[in-house]
Every structure is written in structure tokens, then in C-alpha cells.
């Protein structure tokens, strides 16, 4: 039964890294398509396009961070001694990973679309770059909230 607890924690970590990473990949891809379109006509906008394209990538990093926290908690990393994890504790870690897995996945796609639209905006109005960065950053708020909730929940589980 102890093994099942660890397995549930690993599943949570895998979901946090996998889903948030997948969302980021889709989001960065969507923004990248728009970026390529703009740069075909105006290669000078590379810097701005890169900044906007990178924004949806943060969810993948958040997911990875939570995955590390989760596997550190059950002692799979860090070289410490073996930690006993009950099924309920494992389930707790699994649920703690869900906010960033789900929130990260959907917010990254939404942010990718917003970034793509903003890349189109700077193609026509380069003077509005500041506003173009703020709009996708608004979506980031909800990824950060998901990350915070995952961290709080993970810290709340006592092993």
C-alpha cells in the first residue's frame, strides 16, 4: 500500500509537468505561427515577437516546478532516506498537483491565442508594444494562481 501512495504522488507530478507543458507547447505554437507570419514581412520585429511568443511558455515551467516539489516530498529526489507515504497522503499530493496541471494547460492555450492576437497588433501598430505585452500577461495571473494553490496544498500535506 505504501508503494501505491508513492505512485499516486508520481502520477500527480507527471500530470503537472505533462499537462502544463503540453498547454505551453500549444500556446507557444499558436503564437509562433502568428510571429512567423509577421516576421515574413517585417523581420525587424523579431525581438518583440520572441517576447510575446515566450509568454505562454511559463506554464510549462510552473508545471515542472510543482512536479519537482511533489517528487522531492516523497523522497524520490535529493538523496534523503526513504519516506513512508500512505495512500491518503499520496492522493493528497496527486490532488495538490491538479491546479497547475489543469490551470496551466488551459491558461497556456488561452495565453497563446492572446499573444498571437497581440503579435498581429504590433504588426500594424508597433507603437502599442507596451499594451501588447500587458494583455497576455493578464492571462498569466490565473496560471500563477494555480501555481500558488498547488504550492500551498503541497505544503499542507504532512509526511
Amino acid at each position: 500500500m505504501e508503494l501505491l501512495g508513492i505512485m499516486l504522488a508520481i502520477l500527480g507530478a507527471a500530470m503537472a509537468a505533462g499537462w502544463a507543458g503540453a498547454g505551453s507547447a500549444i500556446g507557444v505554437g499558436i503564437a509562433g505561427e502568428s510571429g512567423a507570419g509577421v516576421m515574413t514581412e517585417d523581420p525587424g520585429k523579431f525581438g518583440l515577437v520572441l517576447l510575446l511568443q515566450a509568454l505562454p511558455g511559463t506554464q510549462g515551467i510552473y508545471g515542472l516546478l510543482i512536479a519537482f516539489f511533489a517528487i522531492l516530498k516523497v523522497g524520490l529526489l535529493g538523496g534523503g532516506g526513504e519516506i513512508s507515504v500512505s495512500v491518503w497522503q499520496g492522493l493528497g499530493i496527486f490532488f495538490a498537483c491538479l491546479p497547475i496541471a489543469i490551470g496551466g494547460y488551459f491558461s497556456a492555450i488561452a495565453q497563446g491565442k492572446t499573444s498571437a492576437a497581440c503579435i498581429q497588433m504590433i504588426a500594424k501598430r508597433p507603437e502599442e508594444t507596451g499594451k501588447a505585452v500587458i494583455l497576455p500577461a493578464m492571462v498569466e495571473t490565473y496560471a500563477v494562481l494555480s501555481l500558488l494553490m498547488s504550492i500551498i496544498l503541497l505544503n499542507g500535506i504532512k509526511l
Binding site: I30, E33, S34, G35, A36, G37, V38, T40, E41, D42, A116, I119, Q120, A123, K124
Partner: peptide
């Protein structure tokens, strides 16, 4: 719909001309 991301972005850049 997302497939039009590249085309629309490029046309937005072309519309400057």
C-alpha cells in the same frame, strides 16, 4: 481556425503597405 494565425498575421503586416 488556428491555421489562419500565420496567414492573418502576415496580412496584418502586409496591410501596413
Amino acid at each position: 481556425a488556428e491555421q489562419y494565425g500565420y496567414a492573418v498575421a502576415r496580412l496584418r503586416a502586409m496591410s501596413v503597405n
